[in-house]
């Protein structure tokens, strides 16, 4: 697949981790072999083959309710695979939680939640440690200083410094999404799992957040697996797409997968892919999944 090109633009923040060099042996960050998943007695999909290499940007696409979020939950180890083999960062799902950044699907934080954005980012760094931090001033604790610097760095990276000290409920959807990406990034993960991060953002913010994720993927060499229902905002950064339909899936380069032939074969009905004058892709005639939208609404409930 594509090599990680160090792209630098004027005004870009300094990269904080050198991307893996091409000479380095490439083990797949995520590997699915004939994987399938069941929720209750319904098989959402099966027979999925996918390899995600280091520093690759992969989108998971498909109609609503087809089990895209379920794929992410399976990679996190919250839901076991019903069939096949799944490896994440060379281990069984759930074992490499420390090296994965996760951004769940959500609408937004409650407007009355009185916690600062920077506290949300901080929880991403040490929120799973027991005990409470001792109230030692940062002057006397190297660890506190390191934590503070790391948080400031990652907040700066996503461009959220101007509002990171405001209560998160008062931030706009795009600002909250940037802070949540900072939270997912704060531990310097090797893999980012993003579940519809562009959902609920308006068009201009969609482009900006997509560009931010694409930049992080390219510059920091972080592999990204992103669930999306519209491929267009992220199309310029994509290395690979996985298109999930009821039952099966196809994976490959966007140009190969998002075509009239491939999608018609996947869905078993005539589907047409159109290209607009500005290069956007439009899929016409894609069937909706059966109206069981449990995975969209079970958020925060039972996995």
């Amino acid at each position: 697949m594509s090599t990680v090109k160090p792209v630098t633009r004027p005004g870009d923040p300094v990269r904080y981790r050198v991307p893996g060099q091409a000479a380095e042996p490439r083990f797949p960050v995520v590997s699915l072999r004939g994987a399938g998943v069941r929720v209750g007695d319904r098989t959402l999909w099966s027979g999925v083959e996918l390899d995600v290499g280091a520093g690759e940007f992969v989108a998971v696409l498909g109609p609503n309710g087809v089990g895209k979020s379920t794929l992410v939950k399976m990679l996190l180890g919250i839901l076991p695979p019903a069939a096949g083999e799944v490896r994440v960062l060379g281990e069984a799902p759930g074992r490499a939680g420390q090296r994965i950044g996760y951004l769940p699907q959500r609408r937004s934080f409650d407007a009355s939640l009185r916690i600062r954005g920077i506290d949300i980012v901080r929880l991403g760094l040490d929120g799973d440690r027991w005990g409470v931090p001792l109230p030692v001033p940062a002057r006397f604790s190297a660890r506190r200083r390191a934590a503070r610097d790391r948080i400031a760095e990652v907040v700066e990276l996503v461009g959220a410094s101007a509002y990171a000290h405001r209560p998160i409920g008062e931030c706009s959807g795009g600002e909250q999404q940037r802070l949540l990406i900072a939270q997912a990034l704060v531990r310097d993960p090797e893999l980012l799992l993003l579940d519809e991060p562009l959902d609920s953002l308006d068009l201009s913010h969609q482009g900006a957040v997509a560009a931010l994720i694409g930049r992080i993927c390219r510059e920091a060499g972080v592999s990204v697996v992103m669930v999306a229902h519209d491929v267009n905002p992220i199309l310029p950064w994509l290395d690979r797409v996985v298109y999930i339909a009821e039952g099966g899936a196809v994976a490959g380069r966007p140009q190969e997968v998002i075509t009239t032939e491939t999608l018609s074969r996947l869905y078993g009905v005539p589907v047409e892919v159109l290209r607009t004058s500005d290069g956007r892709l439009v899929v016409v005639g894609q069937p909706e999944a059966p109206a069981v939208h449990t995975d969209r609404h079970a958020e925060g409930g039972k996995p």
């Binding site: 919250i78 939680g97 994965i100 996760y102 929120g127 799973d128 005990g131």
Partner: peptide
């Protein structure tokens, strides 16, 4: 409460991410 304080805060404001982190 002191022992569970920080993970409890995490789980309270950000349940899904906390679950993903193994809290």
């Amino acid at each position: 409460l002191t022992v569970i304080g920080r993970p409890l805060l995490f789980a309270s404001v950000d349940e899904n991410v906390a679950t993903g982190r193994g809290v």
